[in-house]
């Protein structure tokens, strides 16, 4: 990667943005680490999720569902994958300005998350887009993984997770991930329908399945208007999600 086309001031500004996003987002890794071990995974599996999955929403969903037992593993995998679809959509955009091949393409794909995409596409110059994407992705990866380790160690020392409300913390984490996405009436309708579907199915099907059934809420609401585009209540950009 060459940054010869950027002057020193712009380069510093992009790097400052990358590091601040990396530190701020990485800090949430501590809650993921603690919730991961509270869900019954060992420290190394929790760390593996941050290093290899490296997409926060999917990670929180995976541990939330696997907490009910290994029997829910297929649902946990499916839910993590469904939440990871958006990264593929980001990749379609970032691949346009990154121009990567081979091993660099693999690395770029792995670092394609809300934050790296947001910082990358926000830059006006091509050079700055590449610099912003890579440095943000690397910064978030480093801090997210380091703080996951700290959180997993802390989680291991607290004993019974329910005594410290860690089961409620998982629900709160999902609320924080959902909040910035409730920008349109369609989003609110989808949310309400998904909650009803999940609770209606929960007593009758194995753990994890209600969440997958609730995914239909998105399809129902999206197709209800026959492709009409609803204006968002506020401007929308990737990176509003508080975790990678």
């Amino acid at each position: 990667m060459t940054t010869a086309g950027l002057d020193a001031g712009r380069r510093r500004a992009v790097l400052r943005q990358a590091w601040s996003v990396g530190i701020a987002t990485g800090a949430y890794g501590i809650s993921f680490g603690a919730l991961g071990v509270a869900a019954g995974l060992n420290l190394w599996l929790v760390q593996a999720l941050s290093a290899l999955m490296f997409t926060g929403g999917s990670q929180f969903a995976f541990v939330g569902i696997i907490a009910t037992g290994v029997g829910a593993a297929p649902s946990a995998i499916a839910t993590a994958a469904l939440l990871g679809i958006r990264n593929g959509l980001y990749g379609i955009q970032t691949s346009q300005f990154l121009g990567v091949r081979g091993a660099r393409r693999v690395a770029a794909a792995h670092l394609t998350i809300d934050e790296s995409t947001a910082v990358g596409i926000a830059q006006p110059e091509d050079e700055a887009q590449r610099l912003g994407f890579w440095r943000t992705g690397i910064a978030v990866f480093v801090f997210w993984n380091a703080m996951t380790f700290v959180g997993a160690l802390l989680g291991n020392t607290v004993g019974d997770p329910k005594r410290y409300g860690l089961d409620a913390a998982a629900a709160a984490a999902f609320c924080a991930l959902l909040w910035p996405r409730l920008r349109s009436l369609d989003a609110l309708a989808t949310s309400a329908l998904a909650i009803c579907l999940a609770l209606a199915f929960a007593p009758f099907v194995p753990a994890g399945i209600p969440v997958l059934v609730a995914a239909l809420a998105a399809v129902v609401v999206a197709l209800r208007h026959g492709g009409r585009h609803e204006a968002p209540l506020r401007a929308e950009a990737p990176g509003s999600d508080p975790t990678p």
Binding site: G64, I85, A202, A217, A218, A222
Partner: peptide, 27 residues
């Protein structure tokens, strides 16, 4: 694009409901 925008909303909402209001298969 509408489905892919709303999919995380549906999944996260369902996760909140299950995480907060169920124990095993009981509400």
């Amino acid at each position: 694009s509408r489905i892919t925008t709303l999919l995380p909303v549906a999944l996260l909402s369902a996760l909140i409901a299950v995480q907060a209001f169920t124990t095993g298969e009981r509400l």
